[in-house]
Design a protein around this nucleic acid. Structure first.
Length: 653
DNA sequence: ATAGGGTTAG
């Protein structure tokens, strides 16, 4: 029995020789089951519906009155609704259709297809397949519904195989419904190595079938190509398609977002507005995602204002994207405002807000919100719990995190995934319990991948555990000989201990093997421009002034007690250049610029693509002290709010 | 009886 289905109610017709209801298609033969004459209809067919929902009892009456297969088809459509599918209703309908003999001798293609579509919509493609196999007459709708069922259940191979079967049997040609059914979401599956070739072949078949102008087909091709990063092909599809349709524009914008082409997405948005095509909620969701990931707060606020003017009814996904945008831009208060004034709150809203609170260093509030969520009757899912764990992880609240983790399965009924384990491993390792972390890795029901070991290696550097670190590094070198991060982390362990010779040796091995390291950079939004800084970067137009200001600032914070920590300097430098190099880290440059370019006392929001360096973290605390500014620093991991010489992370990160 | 695009994690 499919796990989501309630037990099938037993028909309570008088004298009926009903057998105990077990499953679905197992308990009820799909066809050739007829009640004796006179037992059909309202009385014989009456069924008990266990749910107390009023829609269901209304449906119950409808079922009783529905006299024709045609009416049944319409009811199945209601049970298959994308927004609120009703598995129990559909199952009862199926039982009733059988009981009434609507699926008796001879095919009823329309009704059978409606039933098939119901199972497909409920993510039960195998049950849909069973209906399909009993049918002798199948039309395009039948094929399309089954293909969609497999594709949406993430079973790409089976969906493709069906598509090929459809072509092979030759009676029914793929139509404008077929390609969207097959292609939507198909590229998102893992292991899409063959997608490039497959994508091209699908595109060719679309053109051959003359369907390339169709906006539905076009949108699904765009999203398929976007999923494999084939932006040129995306553009080619867009050139062919009918561009009056708003959805094609939405899919185009999200294609740019997927391919990390923020400029292209914004440009497409402007073009769309120029052509008087009204953006829908989908478009704003994508734009909010861009503004958040690139931390373009001013742009984000403008898009937000635009959405208020153009969108009348709120929608959960769009509002959640907005919430995340504000959080990603460092504005946790704005994020909270969006959340708390939101009347379309759902599980994702809570999960996103819990995540945001955790990233900004408010684990207690995150937990409080979690409790409130449970109280409100919403059921946390695996992401909610992951985000809650990550909130505890950010704050180093190990016992609290372990408690949640240990009770996940029993209390929430959610089986920990690889990500949950990874979070716990990170939490243990960074808090100094490296042995426990390794033990967890060895005991978890998954094979650890390199990035998880890398987390532990990072923790070894933090806690100066060189013996364990070397062992892990050795293993990682074997797993990924060309991954720069592994060498850098090992080098960090040596520099943290002042063992510069060994650190330099690691560096030279990297050079010998031709492994380039990642370039760190920081950026800051000022007015309508984003200013980006690399390490020791002198390319900014007012670079001279920036360096002068930075030297001045360093002098002041030294006077206030800042001591440079050269164990964060690059591995391969001469002794006397180490301290200087430290000063020109990109996040310090970004601050020196922001301090010049914005009125004194203003809060500065600075982003970094890698984790903040320990020396810069210390310097920022002093910066906030001597300049009186609040500084919000977002690194690739979390947010640091600096104020009056202290950081919200409590120096744990 | 069937259709396309969006939000939470590193």
């Amino acid at each position: 029995m499919p796990p989501f289905l309630p037990p099938l109610p037993t028909p309570c017709a008088p004298n009926s020789t009903s057998r105990p209801a077990r499953g679905l298609l197992h308990a009820i033969p799909h066809r050739n089951l007829k009640l004796p004459p006179g037992r059909r209809g309202r009385q014989g067919g009456r069924i008990t519906i266990s749910s107390s929902s009023s829609t269901l009892s209304a449906a119950q009456d409808l079922i009783a009155d529905a006299a024709t297969p045609r009416a049944f088809s319409a009811l199945f459509k209601a049970a298959s609704s994308a927004t609120s599918p009703s598995p129990s209703l559909g199952v009862q309908l199926h039982a009733q259709a059988v009981v009434r003999g609507f699926l008796g001798d001879g095919d009823n293609t329309i009704l059978s297809t409606a039933i098939l579509n119901f199972y497909a919509s409920c993510r039960q493609p195998d049950l849909a397949r069973q209906v399909f196999d009993t049918m002798t007459c199948r039309n395009a709708v039948t094929w399309n519904a089954l293909i969609k069922g497999y594709a949406q259940a993430g079973r790409r191979e089976e969906a493709l195989e069906l598509f090929r079967d459809m072509r092979r049997q030759g009676h029914v040609a793929p139509d404008k419904y077929t390609f969207p059914a097959l292609l939507s979401g198909i590229g998102r599956e893992r292991g899409g190595g063959c997608m490039q070739e497959l994508g091209g072949s699908m595109h060719a078949q679309v053109i051959k079938s003359g369907l390339h102008k169709d906006p539905f087909v076009g949108a699904s091709l765009v999203s398929m190509y976007a999923a494999i990063g084939a932006l040129e092909d995306v553009k080619a599809v867009f050139d062919d398609v009918d561009t009056l349709d708003p959805v094609v524009w939405s899919s185009m914008i999200s294609a740019y977002v997927n391919c990390k082409e923020e400029q292209g997405a914004l440009l497409t948005f402007y073009k769309m507005l120029c052509r008087d095509i009204k953006p829908r909620q989908f478009v704003y969701s994508s734009l909010f995602a861009i503004c958040g990931s690139t931390s373009l707060l001013e742009m984000g606020r403008q898009v937000h204002a635009h959405s208020l003017k153009n969108i009348a009814d709120k929608d959960a996904a769009m509002t959640n994207a907005l919430l995340t945008m504000y959080s990603d831009c460092g504005c946790i208060n704005d994020a909270w405002r969006v959340f708390s004034s939101n009347d379309v709150v759902d599980v994702v809203s809570y999960s996103s807000m819990i995540l945001a609170l955790g990233q900004h260093g408010h684990p207690k509030e995150a937990f409080e919100l979690f409790r409130q969520m449970e109280f409100s009757g919403l059921v946390p899912d695996d992401v909610t719990l992951l985000n809650l764990l990550s909130a505890f992880n950010h704050a180093g609240l190990v016992p609290e995190g372990l408690h949640i983790f240990d009770s996940m399965l029993d209390i929430q009924g959610i089986k920990p995934t690889y990500e949950h384990y990874a979070c716990i491993v990170d939490m243990l390792a960074r808090s100094g319990e490296i042995g426990e972390a390794i033990k967890t890795i060895n005991e978890m029901p998954f094979e650890a991948e390199a990035p998880l070991w890398r987390i532990v290696l990072g923790a070894c550097s933090k806690h100066r555990d060189i013996a364990t670190g070397m062992k892990i590094a050795e293993m990682l070198f074997e797993m990924e000989p060309y991954e720069a991060a592994n060498y850098i982390l090992l080098g960090n362990i040596y520099t943290r201990l002042g063992r510069w010779t060994e650190a330099a040796k690691v560096r030279s091995v990297m050079d010998k093997r031709g492994i380039g390291s990642y370039d760190a950079f920081s950026w800051i939004e000022m007015g309508k421009k984003t200013h980006r800084f690399g390490v020791a970067d002198r390319s900014h137009p007012i670079s001279e002034e920036i360096y002068r200001n930075l030297d001045r600032l360093i002098g002041s914070i030294k006077a206030a007690g800042y001591v440079p920590d050269i164990s964060f300097a690059a591995h391969n430098l001469e002794k006397d250049r180490r301290e200087e190099s430290l000063h020109y880290h990109c996040e310090k440059l970004a601050f020196a610029f922001g301090d010049l370019a914005s009125p004194s006392g203003n809060t500065l929001r600075i982003m970094k693509n890698l984790r903040v360096c320990g020396d810069c973290h210390s310097a920022y605390k002093y910066f906030s002290l001597i300049t009186g500014r609040k500084i919000i620093l977002r690194d690739n991991h979390r947010f640091h709010h600096f104020n009056k010489g202290a950081c919200s992370c409590g120096d744990y990160w």
